Simulated assay, not measured.
Amino acid sequence: MKLRKVMALTLAGAMAAATLTACGGGADETTAAAAGADKETTAAAEDKETTAAAADSGSADAEVVLQVAFENSITEPVGEGWTKAQEIIKEKSGGKMAIEVYPDSQLGDKSSLIDSMLLGENVCTLADGAFYADYGVPDFGIVFGPFLFDNWDQCWTLIESDWYKEQCGKLEEKGLKIIASNWIYGERHTLTNVPVNTVEDLKGLKIRVPSNEIQSKGFDVLGATSTGMALGDVYQALQTKTIDGAENPLATLYGRKLHEVAKYLILDGHVKNFTTWVVSADWFNSLTEEQQTWLLETASEAGEYNNEVQQAAEADYLQKMKDEGVTVVEPSEEVLAGFKEKAQPFYEMDFGWTDGLYDTVRAAMGANE
Rank of each mutant, 00 (worst) to 15 (best):
W353R: 01
A230T: 03
E187F: 09
A14N: 13
F274K: 09
L231A: 07
M1D: 12
T125Q: 07
F70L: 00
A85C: 07
K39L: 14
S111W: 06
V361E: 03
L231P: 00
A8T: 09
G58K: 07
L205C: 04
A55Q: 08
G145F: 01
V326R: 05
D115Y: 07
E46M: 09
W152S: 07
C124P: 05
V78G: 01
Y358K: 14
N368M: 12
S332D: 09
K340I: 08
Y254H: 14
L107C: 15
A367M: 08
G26N: 06
E334K: 05
Y132N: 08
L9K: 10
S116D: 13
A44D: 12
E260G: 09
T360K: 15
P146L: 05
Y135K: 13
E49A: 13
Y317N: 05
S216N: 11
W156E: 15
N72V: 01
M229D: 05
V278R: 00
E200G: 01
K90T: 10
K241M: 12
E121K: 00
P103N: 06
K48I: 12
G145N: 03
I178A: 00
M229E: 11
L11N: 02
E301N: 10
Y264D: 01
T31V: 12
P210K: 04
L171Y: 11
Y347L: 05
Y185M: 12
D350Y: 10
P138Y: 10
K206G: 02
K206S: 09
T50D: 03
L9D: 05
E289T: 14
I99H: 01
E80Y: 03
T21Q: 10
E297A: 11
V279G: 11
A246Q: 06
L118C: 06
T198C: 05
R4P: 00
W294M: 08
Q239S: 14
L357H: 00
V194M: 08
V199E: 11
K322M: 04
G26M: 07
L9G: 04
S57H: 06
S73A: 15
T276K: 09
S216L: 10
V6K: 15
T192I: 03
V6I: 13
L238R: 02
G366K: 07
K96G: 04
L11M: 14
S181Q: 13
W152K: 15
Q319R: 12
L231V: 14
T288V: 05
P331I: 06
W163L: 14
T242D: 14
K90V: 01
K241V: 08
I179C: 04
